[in-house]
Write a protein that binds this DNA or RNA. Structure first.
Length: 236
DNA sequence: ATCGCCTCCTGCGCGC
DNA sequence: TGCGCGCAGGAGGCGA
């Protein structure tokens, strides 16, 4: 949800820094911080101040350089929350898991945290209280590269497979970042133009196509209410 | 603590 | 063309 009234605290406030934690964008100001999330369908655009609104523009930050920042989010799964305190201490942020591209011991940590986890390994790596950044596309892609069946209980994945999985997650995420994200359909970059390229996907959305390793048929299944794609022959 | 299930909401593509 | 249906990139919150 968008907390409109509280966000008015931003009036006359300087933006000191913008960074992120997991998939949350943190706009640090003098008096606190704006916490943004784009959900499934959100986008942020920077426009000239007099440009007309688009359908589903929900929040506008008016800057002092005749530009505006607008949050557009058709499905409204995103959020915009103001906090007076350090954003790291906010309840949406403080329980977030490991930043996969910022630690060198991800394998050891994911292994030890998984020993009592009976849930499917795909659910495990998508749990943002464990590790952040692995969304539904990248979960299937990472498990394919690591040759791990997405349904295997997390606690049954041995240390060497976790090591492969961690390598795959890092590779998939950094390639995706380099490519500018994954565009399935509508996507707008910050200047308002349709932008960016599809990254190379191996399994996501490839139901009934041939596996790129073994030509076996890619299967679609549902794990944790989410579409999941894998090759039964390569991943076990 | 952990887990599975439900929910929020709009839009699009498909089959009939 | 139009309608109804299923599905979609996230993740908080609930009860068991």
């Amino acid at each position: 949800p968008i907390e409109e009234n509280k966000i008015k605290n931003l009036i006359h406030s300087d933006i000191k820094k913008i960074d992120r934690r997991g998939k949350y964008i943190l706009v640090h100001c003098e008096e606190g911080a704006l916490i943004l999330h784009l959900g499934m369908s959100g986008s942020i655009g920077v426009f000239d101040e007099n440009i007309k609104y688009h359908k589903h523009d929900h929040l506008e930050l008016i800057l002092n350089n005749k530009k505006v920042i607008r949050l557009n989010d058709p499905r409204r799964f995103g959020c915009a929350v103001w906090t007076d305190k350090k954003p790291e201490e906010h309840k949406l942020i403080r329980n977030l898991g490991i930043e996969p591209l910022e630690v060198s011991d991800l394998g050891e940590r994911l292994y030890s945290l998984s020993r009592n986890r009976n849930t499917a390994v795909k659910n495990y790596i998508m749990n943002s209280n464990i590790v952040v950044g692995v969304g539904n596309i990248y979960a299937s892609e990472s498990l394919f590269l690591a040759k791990i069946n997405p349904n295997k209980p997390a606690k049954n994945v041995p240390i060497d497979e976790i090591a492969n999985l961690v390598k795959s997650i890092k590779k998939v995420l950094s390639n995706a970042i380099k490519a500018g994200g994954t565009t399935l359909k509508d996507f707008y970059s910050a200047d308002g133009n349709a932008g960016y390229f599809n990254i190379e996907l191996n399994v996501y959305g490839k139901e009934n196509e041939g596996c790129k390793n073994c030509q076996n048929i890619i299967e679609k299944t549902v794990i944790g209410q989410r579409a999941t794609y894998f090759c039964r022959k390569c991943q076990f």
